[in-house]
Computed example of a mutant assay.
Amino acid sequence: MELDTPVVLVNGLIGCLDHPALHQGLHPRPVIAPDLLGYGTLQGMPAGRIDIAAQVQYLHRQLQARQVQRAHLVGHSVGGVVAMLYALRYPQQVASVVSVEGNFTLNDAFWSASVARMDADAAEAMLEGFRADAQGWLSAAGVAADAQRLALAQRWLAHQPASTLQSMARSVVAVTGATRYLEQLQALFAAAPVHLLAGEHSRSGWDVPHWAAQQAASVTVLPGVGHLMMLEDPQGFAQALARLLA
């Protein structure tokens, strides 16, 4: 039965998508939101062993361990790159891909490029500053803070060390900066259903190539939210995913 096909949520540079509202909103579909290398329970992973390719292989091992034969991949921001490359590497195991403002070009990875250029002390100071003022971090992202959003932001900011941010930032810059990346994505769009999901407040900054918008299985703009839509409105985000997958 198609509703048995799991939805795999792949987080962006910061945070975790294992949220009760996402499980509830996608029910009865199984939802898997594993900690990637360097995140959550795996924060102790050496930074030198963390990059996009390693995340793809780790995610594959996780799904094998759960005996998942085929899944819908949902990747947010940098996680969109992980999801796309996973689908290219393991096409028979992917029912569809949902790119949630996933990085297509270096224009999308502009913040990652900034983090990638920092030295270790500067990256640590940046993350500590965010943690000390989670409300300010939300405000800078265009998100009005309430108690629930603030608690979730604090959880996200504590979910990874600065070294993980730098390793992933450097890797996504290398991947999206390579000429062959867009060529790979064109092949993926031609072979599998790829949905594009953006927030109303951040859509204009998402550098989606013209061909991708034309070839996408669907293009959805979620009203009233921005790039951190799953933090800003987790219920609405889950409902949008459920509609896409239906």
Rank of each mutant, 00 (worst) to 15 (best):
183 E>A: 09
230 M>Y: 01
14 I>C: 03
228 L>N: 13
188 L>G: 06
88 L>Q: 14
243 R>W: 13
79 G>L: 07
215 Q>R: 12
54 A>I: 10
191 A>V: 05
183 E>V: 12
75 G>E: 04
143 V>N: 01
36 L>S: 11
153 A>F: 04
22 L>P: 07
147 A>P: 07
104 F>C: 04
83 A>R: 02
137 W>H: 13
42 L>F: 08
190 A>N: 13
95 A>H: 12
90 Y>K: 08
27 H>Y: 15
168 M>T: 08
198 A>N: 10
26 L>Q: 00
44 G>F: 08
86 Y>V: 01
133 D>K: 11
122 A>Q: 15
40 G>V: 00
116 A>N: 06
99 S>M: 15
229 M>Q: 08
4 D>P: 06
130 F>V: 03
201 H>E: 14
12 G>E: 04
60 H>R: 14
109 A>L: 00
50 I>H: 10
147 A>E: 15
193 P>S: 03
83 A>Y: 12
126 M>A: 12
125 A>K: 12
167 S>G: 12
151 A>F: 09
110 F>M: 06
102 G>T: 03
90 Y>Q: 09
230 M>A: 12
175 V>A: 06
114 S>W: 15
104 F>P: 00
120 A>C: 04
111 W>F: 13
232 E>F: 02
128 E>F: 05
88 L>N: 13
72 H>W: 07
97 V>S: 02
11 N>S: 11
56 V>R: 04
141 A>K: 12
205 G>C: 05
30 P>W: 15
10 V>P: 05
207 D>K: 06
13 L>I: 08
200 E>C: 09
64 Q>D: 15
94 V>G: 00
197 L>C: 01
43 Q>P: 04
25 G>Q: 08
18 D>Q: 02
177 G>M: 06
235 Q>L: 08
110 F>H: 14
69 Q>E: 13
